[in-house]
Design a protein around this nucleic acid. Structure first.
Length: 587
RNA sequence: GCGUUCGUAGCUCAGCUGGAUAGAGCGACGGACUUCGAAUCCGUAGGUCGCAGGUUCGACUCCUGUCGGACGCACCA
């Protein structure tokens, strides 16, 4: 279908050129790739629509008249290429594709191993940094959004041909880490997560919260935390030992959550290992006049000329800051693996930071600074407002998934699906993840979103489970066929049989899968794919209800529709994978 | 105060690089299971796309202003 669209643009461009010659018009004609194609609002108007408004004044002809003139010019090349036919529909040149030809090419493409891969980003190296948790507490709902955006985007860009490197840049140093250490020293009595029967991240997180208690009991606690940080930076053996121990606990816990949600990384790039980076670059930049030194010795950049502020890059004692480090990591990453793009999946509260970072790298003379991209995502709010640690309104990632899985298991039991499903808990877990991930990806990343626990626990409507259910229904039909049931065995597939309107609508939807991947990959918006998948599921639901496959009286039609089900299922599977929604054969 | 960003149906969200009557889901109401699994399907009701200008043959989409919300403007990360 993508090919046909391109071919039509070519044909129309040629027809315009010919028409221009006839009319003696010298003006430059639009290039084929610039001709806009759209979907007519109603199926009976055709499969593709080309508005003629933009070319009216070029030809000094009314759009409707132009559409008419081009329609006749276009017929013979279209027929020759089995591309269907064109007609003027008011000011639009509309195209009805050759259904049999399109069905044949779709069924062939969808059965190929390459189905679900496009080449829009072929040869590109994309590095993506996401998740990057603090190593003093477990993951919460906000991380889940970050994680699934990053993972889904990585998968999608890889499907679009890019080679990906996924990086986790945990924040494992700083005063907040020291606070959990201090509280552990005060209350931990040498206990381990095992002793308390807690997951490592929850265990350490507990002490981080206990720091507030400590502070109430001991007013010097804040200062002690600062002192601990100084010792850490000085390399104090005892401090480093405890730091390492607690960090390991947290990471074990967080990694368990990643395993559960299907998130993984090519590289862990700890801040404790990179925080010294960037200083040299700042010194070099100082010599070149990119930075200036204040009287107290601190080093600054003045970005006021582009409407930003002045920003510190080195403290007066010469130590580095967050932004200094980011300068260093960007440079060293580019040195190790020269990327065509580096995407930072980081909350939108850091937009200013990245603006300054990118601008500074540009001023330092790195031409690849324009390849850096901050994928800013919005906050996840609750109906009651913001999540706040102090108010205990943070939705813990593990607890949330547990709760969802429990509910899914109950649903399976209520429907009496235990036997059909096999391992109830395993399937319930996948339904839970499908519900969660789809919910988080449905909304475009830039927007703040509302997380309504009750609504997210509902499995009806525009949800992950709905999509999984449709995938399972498609699988079920194929399974029955494999088991020898149905009439498809007695027939032979013939693409021409799917020319009826009902089949055609589903064919078009399935065929649009590659375009959805391309759209999501280029715009870096997993929600594009999420919306596509929902449309696919909804179209399939309507279709299979009214159009018998295995039970069809016509064996050839049964066999052909079976192929369409197969193509649909493969699209479900691959699209769901890209969205981190587990595919289920049965649920 | 300055900057960034969001503002579409009662609620949660779509709406592709501006194009033909603005779409889903939830909720409400009414239908469909001796028929490939009803976590489903079909129908009805519900919107002056925050507001006001501007650009354009054409604006939910671009520009300006304005109102409202969120976030940011640390020698924290």
């Amino acid at each position: 279908m993508v090919q046909s669209k391109k071919a039509w643009k070519r044909i129309i461009a040629d027809a315009m050129a010919a028409y221009a010659r006839e009319k003696g018009i010298e003006a430059a004609m639009p290039a084929a790739e610039h001709i806009v194609a759209e979907r007519p609002p109603r199926p009976d108007l055709g499969d593709l629509g080309f508005p003629m408004f933009p070319y009216a004044k070029l030809f000094r002809t009314a759009p409707a008249q132009l559409a008419g003139a081009l329609a006749s010019k276009v017929q013979s090349p279209a027929r020759a290429g089995r591309l269907g036919e064109a007609s003027a529909e008011g000011p639009y040149l509309n195209v009805r594709l050759d259904r049999a030809a399109e069905v044949a090419s779709l069924l062939a493409a969808a059965s190929a191993e390459s189905w679900g891969r496009v080449d829009s980003l072929a040869g590109k190296k994309v590095m993506i940094e996401f998740s990057s948790p603090n190593t003093n507490k477990p993951l919460h709902l906000g991380h889940l959004r970050n994680d699934v955006i990053g993972e889904s985007l990585a998968r999608t860009m890889a499907a679009a041909g890019a080679s990906l490197r996924k990086i986790n840049h945990p924040n494992d140093r700083g005063v907040h880490i020291c606070k959990s250490m201090l509280a552990y020293m005060a209350y931990g009595e040498g206990r381990t997560p095992k002793d308390e029967g807690l997951k490592g991240d929850h265990f350490v997180g507990k002490y981080y919260v206990l720091f507030n208690t400590l502070k109430a009991e001991r007013p010097s606690a804040e200062e002690e935390a600062q002192e601990l940080l100084r010792k850490w930076e000085a390399g104090d053996a005892d401090v480093l030992e405890l730091w390492g121990r607690m960090k390991t606990w947290v990471l074990e816990g967080i990694r368990a959550t990643y395993r559960r949600t299907g998130i993984d990384f090519d590289l862990y790039d700890f801040e404790s290992e990179t925080y010294q980076l960037g200083k040299d670059e700042v010194v070099k930049g100082l010599e070149r006049g990119v930075f200036y030194r204040e009287e107290d010795g601190s080093v600054w950049a003045n970005l006021e000329d582009i409407g930003l502020d002045r920003k510190v890059f080195l403290r007066k004692d010469g130590t580095s800051l967050y932004i200094t480090q980011d300068i260093g990591t960007a440079i060293s990453r580019h040195g190790n693996w020269p990327y065509d793009r580096l995407i930072y999946v980081v909350g939108n509260e850091q937009q200013y930071h990245f603006k300054v970072l990118f601008e500074t790298l540009k001023r330092l003379g790195f031409e690849w600074a324009s390849d850096l991209h901050h994928l800013a995502y919005g906050m996840v709010n609750l109906p009651s407002g913001r999540m706040k640690t102090r108010e205990g309104t943070v939705v813990d990632a593990d607890d949330l998934i547990d709760e969802l899985a429990l509910l899914a298991a109950k649903e399976i039991e209520e429907k009496g699906r235990e036997d059909a499903v096999g391992d109830v808990d395993a399937v319930a877990e996948k339904v839970a993840l499908g519900a969660l991930h789809y919910y988080l990806l449905q909304t475009s990343p830039v927007k703040d979103m509302l997380y309504d626990p009750e609504q997210s626990l509902s499995f009806t409507g525009d949800t992950g489970p709905y999509i999984q259910y449709m995938g399972a229904r498609a699988s079920s039909i194929l399974r029955k066929h494999e088991a020898g049931e149905g009439r498809a065995h007695a027939g032979a597939a013939d693409p021409a049989l799917l020319s009826g309107d009902a089949d055609w609508e589903l064919v078009k939807r399935v065929a649009a899968f590659p375009e959805a991947i391309e759209g999501a990959a280029l715009s870096m918006e997993p929600s594009v794919l999420a919306n596509y998948l929902h449309d696919l599921a909804a179209d399939f639901a309507t279709w299979y209800r009214d159009n018998p496959v295995l039970t069809n009286a016509d064996a050839d039609l049964a066999a052909t529709r079976l192929e369409l089900v197969r193509a649909t299922k493969r699209s479900f599977e691959r699209a769901a994978y890209l969205l981190c929604v587990p595919f289920l054969e049965s649920m």
